[in-house]
Design a protein around this nucleic acid. Structure first.
Length: 275
DNA sequence: AACAAGACCTGCATGC
DNA sequence: TGCATGCAGGTCTTGT
């Protein structure tokens, strides 16, 4: 499910809804997701207040008082929903936090590709899952030259390079396709050939598509929900993603939007407009 | 070292 | 109706 805009949307809504609340009870409802839940997780976080909500790439970081943080990844199908603390636990809800205002935070993830870890604040920066991540694309320092440098010498496709979290952090299949369309760059182009003006255009396209998607609450194809249960609606603004066979919104070409497979994932693009 | 392919899981749409 | 197939927002591991 979630790429950077979906995680950022969830982060913002959680910040408004649960910042400062105390965890009265925490429960895991199975022993693992993609990886095991940390040992004694519930015991170690019970009684603590939620001190900050942050995001790095597609990871949500829930800082708790006392110098520890939950590191959460939502995989493909994960959501975080807030509901009443006395409600029945829904199917596929694997982790719950009962708060001091009679509400419950539910982590629901049918495919269980997500994960939760518990990390001391001073160990976060060197955590194995965060250590190797590339730059945040919405940071001011991310620009054409910085992007070109990350892509320098890469023989792989620009599509595959942008999907690689070590190069740019937080992009996934949807927003890579959409950014390449906005920048007029073919997904098949060699990553290392994206330099100069092209890299400038791509950096701007990445920033704007992410910002637009965050403004729209992310994209709900199937699973993504805001913590309130509301849908995101950026899917209505896709130019190419999931639009195989439809006319290209940017030109009058006859072929329309094509779908190819790169690295086992669908890529959508306009062969005329993207070079 | 870089890159592609396979594995991990469930649910849903499609077609026979 | 039932069953098989393929596909889905991501990463991690394995093999070339």
């Amino acid at each position: 499910m979630p790429e950077l805009p979906e995680v950022e949307t969830i982060r913002r809504h959680l910040e408004a809804a649960v910042l400062g609340r105390r965890i009265l009870a925490a429960r895991t409802h199975r022993r693992d997701l993609r990886r095991p839940f940390p040992a004694k997780l519930a015991t170690r976080i019970t009684g603590r207040r939620i001190a900050a909500l942050e995001r790095r790439a597609k990871y949500l970081i829930v800082r708790l008082e006392g110098g520890i943080a939950l590191l959460v990844h939502l995989g493909m199908s994960g959501r975080i929903l807030i509901g009443p603390a006395d409600a029945r636990v829904e199917p596929h809800v694997h982790f719950t936090l009962d708060l001091d205002d009679e509400r419950r935070v539910n982590l629901q993830d049918p495919r269980r590709f997500g994960m939760v870890d518990l990390v001391p604040d001073d160990k976060l920066a060197e955590h194995p899952l965060l250590r190797g991540l590339g730059p945040e694309p919405l940071a001011p320092a991310f620009n054409g030259p910085a992007l070109a440098k990350m892509l320098e010498g890469r023989g792989t496709s620009i599509k595959a390079a942008l999907m690689d979290q070590r190069r740019v952090a937080g992009l996934g299949n949807i927003y890579v396709c959409e950014a390449l369309f906005r920048a007029g760059i073919s997904p098949k182009r060699k990553a290392g050939s994206v330099t100069g003006d092209r890299a400038d255009r791509l950096a701007v396209a990445i920033k704007t598509v992410l910002a637009d998607a965050i403004d729209a609450g992310g994209s709900t194809l199937r699973d993504h929900r805001l913590p309130s249960g509301e849908l995101g609606y950026f899917q209505h603004h896709f130019a190419v993603y999931d639009h195989e066979g439809e006319p290209c919104p940017g030109c009058d070409c006859k072929t329309g939007i094509k779908r190819i497979v790169q690295g086992g994932r669908s890529t959508f693009y306009c062969a005329k407009r993207q070079k």
